[in-house]
Amino acid sequence: MLRYVLKRLVSLVISLAVASLVIFLAIEVVPGDPAAYMLGLNAQPDTLAALRDQLGLNGTIPARYLSWIGGMLTGDFGTSYTYRTPVADMIGERMWISLPLALYALSLSTLIAFPAGVWAASRRGSAVDMGVMGVTQLGVAIPNFWFAMLMVLVFAINLRWFSAGGFAGWEQGFLAGMKSLTLPAIALALPQASILTRVMRSSLLDTLSEDFIRTARAKGLTRRQVLWRHALRNAMIPVLTIIGMQFSFLLAGAIIIENVFFLPGLGRLVFQAISARDLIVVESVLMLLVFAVIVVNFAVDVAYAAVDPRLRGRR
């Protein structure tokens, strides 16, 4: 197990290094002079020189890359060009909206998918099964930002149960904060819950057709006992993988949904930074999101191997 974790750890570090290199090269090297790009066409030469100096653009490319990475590792993400504040602080502040939103959506998706998948699988072929599958078919096809807009129309504008957008702020209390995140989290969770329900159902159906289930039934267990004691645990492995993968999609998806609800999270930050040509911010947010995706995938792989020893030898 230790060997496996070490091996995965090495590939984690390599992935992070390559990903950071891709982002760095794409943002800083390809378009020519970032300082000129940020200041636009009418930049004064001395302003340009000052900015180049401030951005550390006068060094060689490898030196700039190393100082960027070194800064990130020590929590120094550089200074935003437009806001003149440390990027790390800006990200830290907005993280408190995007991360809880993604986690909230992940919990919702799991809480919906789990019972729905088990229910459909245990009544395979029945009207319940057809109904659940039909709903998930719609859930996968619906654009979640559109669903979010419709929810705003119904629950915020017509029924006035929620506010149409904005964030109450955590200082207003946990519940007030969660309330502002509820509609966004539902919108974000809908497609993921649909996918997860389908995975849960088919994984459970696969497990239920295995020999050990038949043996358990033959020794006199009821269908219900077999389902809860034997089938569910074994059906969980693919479900866990998908949950891990979904977290990264939820973080990225949160960027879009934040736009619908005017939530001041990472998504708003990155889009404002793009239009303000604040490349340092774009670069840092991208790296942070990719970092989260790679680390979550690593954690899922390790958790997976801890549950199922057979997987350690593979790859």
């Binding site: 990903a19 990264s248 990225a252």
Partner: peptide, 9 residues
């Protein structure tokens, strides 16, 4: 590791 949205950004 790069969802299409991040590539687009």
């Amino acid at each position: 590791a790069f969802p299409s949205l991040l590539i687009a950004i």
